[in-house]
Simulated scan of single mutants.
Amino acid sequence: MKSVYEAAGGSDGLLRLAAAWHARVMADEIVGHAFSHGFHPQHTERLAAYWAEALGGPTTYSDTHGDETSVVRMHSGNGPHEEMDHRAIACFDDALQDVGLTSEPLRTVLHDYFAWATTTTMSRYHESADDVPEGLTIPRWSWDGPQR
């Protein structure tokens, strides 16, 4: 059986998805606010590499950009933002449609992964990025959900 990474089109497929998601969030007045301070020039490529690693692909993100601790710290210390999270998930669902990742069960698995990551790991430390522990590894997700 293919990994979720392979079923999503590998690195190229996830790069298309990351670009579509980024375009949608930048156009959203609520989610776009998260990027108002600026973002890395290779944000889309880095996001695609992160998703690839989480979904069973190569460890490019961890090997070259950082670990889960660094990613979670980027998303921490901003207080609760449930509306933003829900809108980011809606943008992701629309981006899946934009790039044609609509066949089941792939669409549902990708949605479930993104919704889980957005509402758990990326929003766990509302008070301060300093609360994020060292040494976190990128959580892995498969057809059956989070892997232990």
Rank of each mutant, 00 (worst) to 15 (best):
residue 35 F to M: 11
residue 14 L to I: 08
residue 10 G to H: 05
residue 66 G to M: 05
residue 82 E to G: 05
residue 33 H to S: 06
residue 38 G to P: 02
residue 53 E to T: 08
residue 147 Q to K: 14
residue 86 H to T: 01
residue 3 S to D: 05
residue 69 T to E: 06
residue 97 Q to R: 10
residue 26 M to E: 11
residue 34 A to L: 13
residue 84 M to D: 06
residue 16 R to D: 07
residue 100 G to V: 02
residue 19 A to F: 08
residue 79 G to S: 06
residue 109 V to G: 10
residue 132 V to E: 04
residue 38 G to L: 01
residue 7 A to Y: 08
residue 54 A to N: 11
residue 111 H to L: 09
residue 78 N to R: 15
residue 54 A to V: 07
residue 84 M to R: 13
residue 102 T to H: 02
residue 40 H to I: 01
residue 127 E to R: 14
residue 115 A to D: 11
residue 62 S to T: 13
residue 91 C to L: 11
residue 39 F to P: 00
residue 132 V to L: 09
residue 127 E to H: 14
residue 38 G to H: 04
residue 41 P to A: 04
residue 24 R to A: 12
residue 138 I to D: 06
residue 128 S to V: 00
residue 44 T to R: 07
residue 71 V to T: 14
residue 3 S to T: 15
residue 115 A to H: 14
residue 136 L to V: 00
residue 51 W to H: 10
residue 21 W to T: 05
residue 67 D to M: 11
residue 135 G to A: 09
residue 38 G to M: 03
residue 43 H to V: 08
residue 34 A to R: 12
residue 54 A to C: 12
residue 44 T to A: 15
residue 8 A to I: 01
residue 115 A to L: 05
residue 66 G to T: 07
residue 10 G to E: 01
residue 125 Y to E: 09
residue 136 L to E: 04
residue 128 S to Y: 03
residue 86 H to E: 15
residue 15 L to I: 08
residue 1 M to P: 05
residue 142 S to V: 01
residue 70 S to L: 13
residue 19 A to Y: 12
residue 96 L to E: 00
residue 94 D to Q: 10
residue 46 R to F: 10
residue 54 A to P: 08
residue 144 D to G: 10
residue 51 W to P: 09
residue 91 C to D: 12
residue 27 A to R: 10
residue 59 T to Q: 13
residue 102 T to L: 09
residue 47 L to T: 12
residue 118 T to F: 03
residue 81 H to M: 14
residue 20 A to S: 10
residue 79 G to Q: 03
residue 110 L to W: 03
residue 23 A to D: 14
residue 107 R to G: 02
residue 24 R to F: 05
residue 121 T to E: 15
residue 35 F to A: 04
residue 45 E to D: 08
residue 44 T to F: 08
residue 84 M to G: 14
residue 27 A to K: 15
residue 102 T to M: 04
residue 112 D to C: 01
residue 109 V to I: 13
residue 138 I to S: 06
residue 8 A to D: 04
residue 71 V to D: 01
residue 134 E to R: 08
residue 21 W to V: 08
residue 131 D to W: 15
residue 76 S to G: 11
residue 11 S to V: 13
residue 72 V to R: 08
residue 128 S to I: 00
residue 92 F to N: 03
residue 48 A to L: 05
residue 94 D to T: 11
residue 130 D to I: 01
